[in-house]
Amino acid sequence: MVTLITNGIKITVETAFEGTYFKNQVTQYAFSYHITIENHSKDQVQLLARHWDIYDALYPRESVDGEGVVGKKPILKSGETYTYSSGCLLYAPHGSMSGYFTMINFTTTKMFNVTVPAFYLNAEYALN
């Protein structure tokens, strides 16, 4: 588990290896990640977008941008928490992800980025 606080928003990430899949004679490794977003600021905020940098040990970095998370743009009042789960497929049993969420502060009407700390995706059986 990794945790980081940016501008009063705490991000916690937990990961799990979900299994190996074979598709078109290619092995892929499935990982899930569970993210908890906690609003420790005094203001109400909304998550608008996400940016991910995905590192696969066998391929160059891939960047992914999109609106919200898992089809939602959660609003968090001060003290509230939002948790969601998602996942990714890698071609190697090792990799990592990092990124940020773009949010808006409803009090100041300013947008800001919240860093998602780098987290590792590792198939346990492949670790030394």
Results as ranks from 00 to 15, higher is better:
residue 109 T to Y: 10
residue 50 R to E: 06
residue 112 F to L: 04
residue 122 N to T: 13
residue 12 T to L: 04
residue 76 L to C: 07
residue 49 A to V: 00
residue 58 L to R: 15
residue 39 N to I: 04
residue 111 M to I: 06
residue 28 Q to E: 13
residue 50 R to D: 03
residue 33 Y to F: 15
residue 28 Q to F: 13
residue 80 E to G: 04
residue 100 Y to W: 14
residue 66 G to P: 12
residue 111 M to T: 13
residue 50 R to G: 00
residue 24 N to H: 15
residue 11 I to T: 07
residue 36 T to A: 00
residue 89 L to E: 12
residue 37 I to G: 07
residue 54 I to N: 11
residue 115 T to H: 04
residue 6 T to K: 06
residue 122 N to H: 14
residue 72 K to P: 01
residue 7 N to Q: 14
residue 115 T to K: 10
residue 53 D to H: 10
residue 82 Y to Q: 02
residue 34 H to D: 12
residue 39 N to R: 05
residue 107 T to K: 15
residue 84 Y to H: 08
residue 62 E to I: 13
residue 20 T to F: 02
residue 53 D to A: 10
residue 17 F to S: 10
residue 41 S to K: 05
residue 16 A to N: 14
residue 37 I to R: 03
residue 37 I to N: 01
residue 30 A to V: 08
residue 104 I to F: 03
residue 96 S to E: 13
residue 107 T to N: 12
residue 111 M to D: 03
residue 52 W to S: 08
residue 22 F to V: 14
residue 96 S to D: 12
residue 65 D to Y: 08
residue 77 K to Y: 12
residue 110 K to P: 02
residue 100 Y to C: 10
residue 12 T to P: 00
residue 1 M to K: 02
residue 59 Y to R: 15
residue 95 G to V: 09
residue 85 S to T: 15
residue 47 L to S: 05
residue 128 N to S: 13
residue 86 S to I: 02
residue 114 V to R: 02
residue 54 I to D: 12
residue 35 I to K: 03
residue 111 M to Y: 06
residue 54 I to Y: 09
residue 68 G to M: 00
residue 117 P to C: 01
residue 28 Q to I: 11
residue 63 S to C: 08
residue 121 L to W: 09
residue 14 E to M: 05
residue 45 V to A: 02
residue 51 H to A: 06
residue 107 T to R: 14
residue 87 G to C: 07
residue 54 I to V: 11
residue 112 F to C: 05
residue 107 T to Y: 10
residue 31 F to G: 08
residue 82 Y to C: 00
residue 119 F to Q: 08
residue 69 V to H: 00
residue 13 V to W: 03
residue 61 R to G: 07
residue 50 R to F: 04
residue 28 Q to L: 07
residue 32 S to G: 11
residue 34 H to V: 06
residue 120 Y to K: 15
residue 77 K to E: 09
residue 65 D to Q: 12
residue 125 Y to T: 13
residue 37 I to T: 14
residue 125 Y to P: 04
residue 69 V to Q: 02
residue 35 I to P: 01
residue 119 F to H: 12
residue 37 I to H: 00
residue 104 I to M: 08
residue 1 M to H: 08
residue 10 K to W: 06
residue 55 Y to S: 09
residue 27 T to F: 03
residue 30 A to R: 15
residue 11 I to Y: 06
residue 61 R to F: 07
residue 125 Y to R: 15
residue 83 T to C: 05
residue 24 N to V: 09
residue 30 A to K: 14
residue 87 G to F: 05
residue 104 I to K: 06
residue 19 G to V: 07
